[in-house]
Amino acid sequence: MEISRETAQESMRVIEQAVNRTRLARDWGWSDVILMVWGAVWIFAFLGNHFLPEMAWAFWMIGVSVGILGTVLVNLRMAERVQSEDSSRIGYFWYSLFLFVFLEIAVIQPIESIQVNAFICLQIMLAYVVLGLWVDSKGLIALGGAITFFVLVGYFLLQPYYYLWMALTGGVTLLGSGIQARLRMRRP
């Protein structure tokens, strides 16, 4: 079978396009909705924490419950799309992470709620970076790095406005990343 150089070039373009689309769907196909859900949760809970600190526990309880429910539903749906040994390992990774966060807080016994909050955010962003390295996703690594930066700036430089800062930076970044990922996948 013989083909022209132009046809060979077109074939390589078809391959590249298919690979890019598949990797995008694999890397972000589950997380666009999860990022949007958690972005909205962060904005809701952080703003609530800032403006009504006495009710902070309620905002976080509601927000985290919604976030966990949304994550579980998306993962159930995603299990219908791609079957992979990695999928269950990623799930166990998250369960282990939250268990260890709980244990670490019990050992460290932070004094202020802002310390607990910053600690949890940093642990979650560590997970994003690790997962990004695991599945070779520069986007996840960058997202984890960016929000880590926001947490550190808020905690060390803007403590009186930490919760407001995190709503407007961390929450908006998560939400925006999810929206961006969804739009990229829908592009023809």
Partner: peptide, 17 residues
């Protein structure tokens, strides 16, 4: 070609719906 490229970009033990 696109189909095979798509499947090849998954890990060897991954299956897609």
């Amino acid at each position: 070609l696109g189909l095979m490229a798509s499947l090849m970009s998954l890990a060897p033990k991954e299956k897609v719906d």
